[in-house]
């Protein structure tokens, strides 16, 4: 496969619901083999964007390409290379876990039975149990198994850890997603929309933060950690007011000052040192902190 073709290429995507702009001029590109985080507040347009990727919603304007193909015109070909886990999972109530997996396997040319057996054991799902008797978290687990077993080139996850208990969540993210990508490095792409950014911290290679249907920030994770830093300083008297443009967020708590800085850290540090703080330290931000600072 030509590695230059992006797994996802969205250009100036717009989608309206009546008069409301759910997505407004959104652009992003996901390279193959990456784990891409798609972050935003509730109602930012994440699910709408994901549904447009799979032709579950039609864009009002803009273009979407998945592996260089148009999801509207080449729907079946696109979906053959993509597996999707929606935020709200529903199965046919009369099917058992086994029946649901067999049914979904019937759509796929490839289905890894060993992975299926391993994941069923790991999630402790009884194949004979009816899907109507599964809890919300168990339905999500089943949907995740059904998405991973075909070993698709692109895994699209919309709030995949919703309803999962903390143990399963950690296990799923670290082991399942990590193992999935490790199975074919460079070819398997994960596109995940989530609020639990901290849980995906170690896996995300690139991310976008969207707000009101627009991209606020799009960076590589490592570059973001270099660009965004927090400076904590303590002063003998009231902390000074700084108006450097690099300061994204500033918090005062008595004599303590906490700054989130993007860009020229040294410049801001020098300004702070000029005011002779009692103590000062700098540390990189997590992706969640970057998300909060960007939207604040």
């Amino acid at each position: 496969m030509n590695a230059e073709i992006p797994a996802i290429d969205i250009q100036h995507l717009a989608r309206k619901y009546g008069r409301t702009d759910a997505v407004n001029d959104l652009s992003l590109t996901v390279r193959p083999g990456r784990c891409y985080g798609f972050f935003g507040r509730n109602g930012a347009g994440k699910t709408t964007t994901i549904k447009c990727l799979l032709n579950l919603l039609r864009p009002t304007s803009g273009s979407i390409q998945v592996f260089g193909m148009d999801p509207r015109r080449q729907e079946a070909e696109v979906k053959a290379r993509v597996c999707y886990v929606p935020d709200v999972v529903a199965f046919y109530p009369w099917m058992t876990v086994r029946g649901a997996l067999d049914y979904l396997a019937s759509f796929r040319e490839k289905w890894n039975r060993e992975t299926e057996i391993t994941l069923l054991k790991r999630f402790d799902l009884d194949p004979r149990k009816s899907t109507s008797g599964l809890s919300k978290g168990q339905r999500m687990q089943l949907a995740l198994i059904a998405a991973i077993c075909p070993e698709p080139e692109l895994l699209v996850l919309d709030e995949p850890t919703s309803g999962l208990d903390p143990i399963v969540r950690r296990d799923f993210i670290r082991t399942v997603i990590g193992a999935y990508q490790a199975g074919d490095p460079g070819r398997r792409t994960v596109f995940v929309s989530t609020h639990l950014i901290s849980e995906f911290e170690g896996l995300i290679d690139e991310f976008s933060i969207i707000e009101k249907g627009r991209t606020l920030l799009a960076l590589e994770a490592d570059a973001a950690r270099e660009q965004f830093q927090r400076i904590d300083a303590r002063f003998a008297l009231a902390p000074p007011l700084l108006d450097d443009t690099e300061i994204v967020q500033s918090k005062r708590d008595g004599r303590e000052l906490s700054l989130i800085v993007r860009g020229n850290i040294e410049k801001v540090s020098a300004h702070l040192r000029a005011h002779r703080p009692e103590s000062m330290n700098t540390q990189a931000l997590t992706l969640e902190e970057i998300f909060l600072a960007t939207l604040a």
């Binding site: 799979l54 579950l56 729907e75 979906k79």
Partner: peptide, 17 residues
Amino acid sequence: NHGTLPLLLSQPVSRRR
């Protein structure tokens, strides 16, 4: 009624089929 339409439509099969 059962909310399985997204599951069905996201499978790799054409709508015509």
